[in-house]
Design a protein around this nucleic acid. Sequence first.
DNA 1: GTACTTCTGTCGAGTGTCAATCAAAAGTCG
DNA 2: CGACTTTTGATTGACACTCGACAGAAGTAC
Lengths: 405, 405
Amino acid sequence: MAYVTVIDEQNSAAAGPAANALPNSAGALFQLLRDGTPRTRSDLTAMTGFARSTISARVEELLDSSLIRPAGENSSTGGRPPSTFSFNPDARSVLAVDLGGTHARIAVTDLAARVLAEKEQELDITRGPVAVLDAVGAIAMELLQEAGRSPEDLLGVGVGVPGPVEFATGRPMSPPIMPGWDHFDIPGHLRQWFPGPIMVDNDVNAMALGEHAVTYPGVANMMFVKVATGIGSGIISDGRLQHGAQGAAGDLGHIATPDGDTTPCTCGNSGCLEAVASGPAIAAQLRESGFDVPHHAAMLELVRSGDLEALRTVRQAGRQVGSVLAGCVNLLNPSVIVIGGVVSTAGEHFLAGIREAVYSRSLPLATQHLRIVATQTKARAGVLGASTLVTGHGLSIENVNRLIG
Amino acid sequence: MAYVTVIDEQNSAAAGPAANALPNSAGALFQLLRDGTPRTRSDLTAMTGFARSTISARVEELLDSSLIRPAGENSSTGGRPPSTFSFNPDARSVLAVDLGGTHARIAVTDLAARVLAEKEQELDITRGPVAVLDAVGAIAMELLQEAGRSPEDLLGVGVGVPGPVEFATGRPMSPPIMPGWDHFDIPGHLRQWFPGPIMVDNDVNAMALGEHAVTYPGVANMMFVKVATGIGSGIISDGRLQHGAQGAAGDLGHIATPDGDTTPCTCGNSGCLEAVASGPAIAAQLRESGFDVPHHAAMLELVRSGDLEALRTVRQAGRQVGSVLAGCVNLLNPSVIVIGGVVSTAGEHFLAGIREAVYSRSLPLATQHLRIVATQTKARAGVLGASTLVTGHGLSIENVNRLIG
DNA sequence: GTACTTCTGTCGAGTGTCAATCAAAAGTCG
DNA sequence: CGACTTTTGATTGACACTCGACAGAAGTAC
């Protein structure tokens, strides 16, 4: 145990002594099959360099564990046709929980983050951890039954929460909008229903992970930006989700916009992005222009109705977001920026404003291959990411070796 | 080969087929000893979980290869006193090259990035890759002789260059201040003198790596900011140096400052940090105030002389840097920011300006454990980082197993 | 049907690791 | 000085993982 930990910190490689008692290559083979593509034993020997006999033995183990399944035969190339097999996402399932400020989305997914059963429900996060998680547990049991799965069938549970999280322990850290949750042991409480590993992360981080896994699996450097009541982001650099030192990375909301705006922000500073381009900020600007938009929904409706003043306001908010993102692009040099959150549903004008500002203010080298796109996974991004959180760790080489052994 | 590559991309673990023919644990053991602390065989069995017999066998191999060396005996705890051994940084050496716009610093170091021989020399990067690298090669051969080492003794060569680099190939990518270097195969050219691996990276990335390895080895999230003719940074997140999609990550120079400044910048935009807080920008501001500061050096001298107006100007430049760094802190949540580059030698006022702006504009959660400090390694940061670039890859588990086998 | 190609399963050999044992070395404690 | 403790080295058999070679299975080409 100590061994694995130490090595992971230092260089993240080599199997520990325990791993040596198990087939070492089964987990590695499995990683090659995880993309879902059917492959033959020959494919795998070519890809890995292992001997045919070794491949055959490990493939058989993986078939026995049902982590992979037969996928028919390829056509012959002059001799016996090779049999193929591929990842079997139905081998286990995952419970994915996405908690927002006012409602929760809970899903049971397979190992490829495909939703088997799902429910969205009003759930006020301010009711505190015990009440909220008890409700989540009850809904989850219903969904498992609906999907024909049991708690023992779960590879693990993934949870996204609207605040910073100490990832290693799964505890929220001074979350501003989650009274009563500070340092609460979320995995500890959920363990009464679910035996497997329970992973907790910030909701925007989860969304980034979900969009990445489902839509941009090969992209090493990506940002997911959520624009809603607040403005936050999840950062994937070098293929890994970045948490920062206190799990507070990705907070775009209180970065100052470059135009010297002095709108006061709830944080005490002025000119924060959240104060000028969030959902409430846009609604407030429209109210100043004389519109009757008491909340988000009304604002979005007004924009979708095509009102020119509303469109102009939304586009200008997009520019503000883009002006901050331009700095992020220079700093992180991502190849994809995904825009999500309710405000992004306002239409193309918001995205156009973002693009306009980013491409005019970032450096050519950083923007030449940069794509700025709207989320494909939309409201599901959170649960898909929570699912990915679990499979990312539960289907790692070490874990697969453990599952087989 | 293909195996290692594929696995590294997917999950970075498991030994390849070739590795199995070699002792697997020697490299892992070595990682535990790399911090330089002397340890006993018992220490290692406790840390790794390996059997005593295995440890003894691998330790002997490491001793034979001279990667570790005896380090005396511990005091007895009632029985025979255990013998200890520790990392032997003298086992091999490293050639470290730090190329700037107008001069080069070249060093031969040991495996712990301690300088054995060093030379700094005027060398105009615009003379082109062949002329510059030929000069570097000649100086390097001299330094090797001075240090009593041979090219075969090198674990590898590390090079820092003042522009973006495609890290995998070691080629500069559209570098603005390196005419003739675009896509030049630097490792290919240096290979005529040096047989080992040759790693090239951006100079600021190298500085970040150097400061990290020498001064903040345990810190997982760090930024190194260089303020000189330009303003750039090297980002270490989750313990890894971040390059971004095109190797262009870390460019702070052309991020817009939040105060709406409209000073025109060489990049075509206005209000860029580089236009208001770089060495030349500070000098220009002082000239406007009537001072005779034709260049950097004169400006720094004026500041060090204690002139109040100059101090005020430098402090204000610090605030500008800090206002941009505040955004970086929100985005990346580092625990240490190191300030380097010639402008940082102007004194505490610059650093004070940075701190003032960062702590007033970043979120409390992100700043509560944040340290903003001046570089300890100073002008040597670049070569130390170039050295670390080589040891980071050359002393990895796989490589150590190869060195022994 | 026969020859050929390609895929697949089985077996023994080689190697790394473990657990156990014995013996020697080098201290401490009474 | 002798008894005890702890470390170290050497050796052994057992086990797991991998490899390479061989033989059998299942197609195609003539």
